[in-house]
Amino acid sequence: MSKDLSQLREDYTGESLRRKDLSRDPIDQFQAWFSQAQDLGVVEPNAMSLATVDEKGQPWQRSVLLKGLDKRGFVFFTNFGSRKSQQIAGNAKVSLLFPWISIHRQVAITGSATKIPATESLKYFVTRPFGSQIGAWSSPQSSIISSRSILETKLDEMKRKFKKGGVPLPSFWGGFRITPETVEFWQGGQNRIHDRFLYSKSDDIGWNLNRLAP
């Protein structure tokens, strides 16, 4: 390793984040930050780390893409036979992280994941490029395979099968919606005095908002 990890650091110089700068609803605030991330050139701002827990209590993480957002929550799509899907089936509690490091911001979300209706999955599926559609049919996601050639052979088979278009939605593929219970907005500050605000779901007033120490 060429550099001493203990000496790697960057001091953040952005403006401080104040309560008055925040929306009353975390979804509105997320949409505002997401738009700013797009405008500022963040690479794949919809990439998010998804954490799930297996039957032994072991956490797992992977990056997935946000493909839908409204007041109900955050939507991503996957194979229902995948590791993440199986873990969600056993424990619906998950967390998300949007690491917008280049603009010194992060958004962390906790909540519960549920499958969306097949009609909603189909509405998204038909907008995917042909290659992505047949890719969904070709991979037994998270299964052990002996070589890449198995995937390539299956992909060629799907190309021939659906060469005239009209790829149907696989019964084993679709979306999950994460209904948020907490949403934390983190903005980097000078001298490691970062700004953190946590929205927590409340049945009585909608959302509580509190500042957290960095």
Rank of each mutant, 00 (worst) to 15 (best):
R211I: 07
I88N: 03
L155A: 01
R9G: 00
Q106K: 11
M1I: 05
S171D: 11
A136Y: 12
Q31L: 14
I205R: 15
T78F: 06
A32T: 14
I178D: 01
F77T: 11
G57K: 09
Y199M: 04
V75P: 03
Q38I: 15
G81I: 05
V183M: 12
W60N: 10
L122I: 04
D203N: 13
Y12D: 00
P180V: 08
L169Y: 10
E184C: 13
G111W: 00
R24P: 01
R62P: 05
K71E: 13
V42N: 06
G206E: 05
W207H: 09
A47Q: 05
D70T: 01
I134N: 08
L65G: 06
V75F: 05
P180T: 09
K163P: 01
K159R: 15
L50K: 13
V94K: 08
V64G: 01
V43Y: 10
V75L: 13
E55T: 12
R83N: 02
I134T: 03
N79M: 08
K201W: 12
E120W: 02
K201E: 05
T127W: 11
A118E: 11
R148G: 04
W186I: 04
G135N: 01
K123Y: 01
I144K: 13
P99G: 08
Q61R: 11
L66F: 09
P180L: 06
G81E: 09
N191Y: 14
P59G: 04
K115V: 06
S112T: 14
H194E: 12
G111Y: 08
D195S: 15
S16L: 12
G68I: 03
G135K: 11
Y199V: 02
D28Y: 02
